[in-house]
Design a binder for these strands. Structure first.
Ligand SMILES: [Mn+2]
Ligand SMILES: [Mn+2]
Ligand SMILES: [Zn+2]
Ligand SMILES: [Zn+2]
Lengths: 143, 143
DNA sequence: ATGCAAATGCAAATCGTTTGCAACTGGAAA
DNA sequence: TTTCCAGTTGCAAACGATTTGCATTTGCAT
């Protein structure tokens, strides 16, 4: 079941069609992104990429993330404090809850809130282009 | 009606009671903050402060903002892209809509959304410590 | 295979913010 | 009031994340 591999090749082809050259560093990064289940930052992507392509540079990681962001392939998040973190734009929209003790990032979605956002913006005479909705909290202790 | 002046003196006293020395630079910054109707960043605060105390330094602006933040006197916002921006913590809680064309910051509040946040966090087993909720949009054109 | 624009690695630059340090000062105590 | 010293300052240098200039490679259309 190398569904993984096929999906990756499709991914690469989609970009090639958009005029993006598939280079060795980019191939490594795409592979990492399609496997990642978390929200790695540039340095973490760099570390993971080194394991695949030992000649890759941090600049290239940054340049590639900007490229992919422009192409709409990834999303960039700037959670409180830390450096930018990334994730594939594949799935549907969701927001994040960050565990301030562990740093864990939990995804959630509330259609209710998304609707309310539109209402609020509309009432103020605006059209929402994008939004940032992050909850910062800690595990509820006791019962 | 120098209500302004009285409020400022109260402000200073409150801090003094918390063990904060009221120095010349701090007095200038407090005055600026209590007058500001917008969300200035450190450099803008520095500019405004220079008009009151020509010897103030940018470092002191930064140090004072951190101090006031710790004392709960101001709120620090990190809107997309730009540098940190500040505002007095006086009023009640509100969130922001940023006009991506003009940079204007519009305040709003939705008790509904605040409640939903708690529900969501609770469902995920968390207690919210703070949150970030920003809408980015542009003025709705046409009718 | 060939050619060339696009992409790379490296080092240096940038931006917002923080910090070390020696000089200065608020305000409690005498 | 004067004294005193921990708290505060300005300055310059350090910082972390990200971007950029440049000379050198490389993907890939021909
Ligand atoms: Mn996510
Ligand atoms: Mn505000
Ligand atoms: Zn959302
Ligand atoms: Zn809110």
């Amino acid at each position: 079941m190398d569904n993984e591999a096929r999906k990756l090749r499709e991914y690469e082809q989609r970009l090639r069609d958009e005029g993006v050259r598939i280079t060795r560093p980019r191939r490594a990064i795409l592979q990492i992104l399609s496997q990642a289940a978390d929200h790695p930052d540039a340095m973490e992507l760099f570390r993971r990429a080194l394991a695949i392509d030992p000649t890759i540079s941090l600049s290239t990681v940054y340049r590639t993330m900007k490229l992919l962001e422009d192409k709409g392939e990834i999303q960039r998040h700037a959670f409180a404090g830390g450096p930018a973190r990334f994730e594939q734009a594949a799935g549907e929209h969701h927001d994040h809850l960050i565990d301030i003790d562990t740093g864990d990032v939990i995804e959630f979605h509330s259609e209710r809130i998304e609707q309310l956002q539109d209402e609020i913006a509309h009432r103020l005479g605006y059209d929402i282009v994008h939004h940032r909705f992050e909850l910062y909290g800690c595990r509820r202790k006791r019962k």
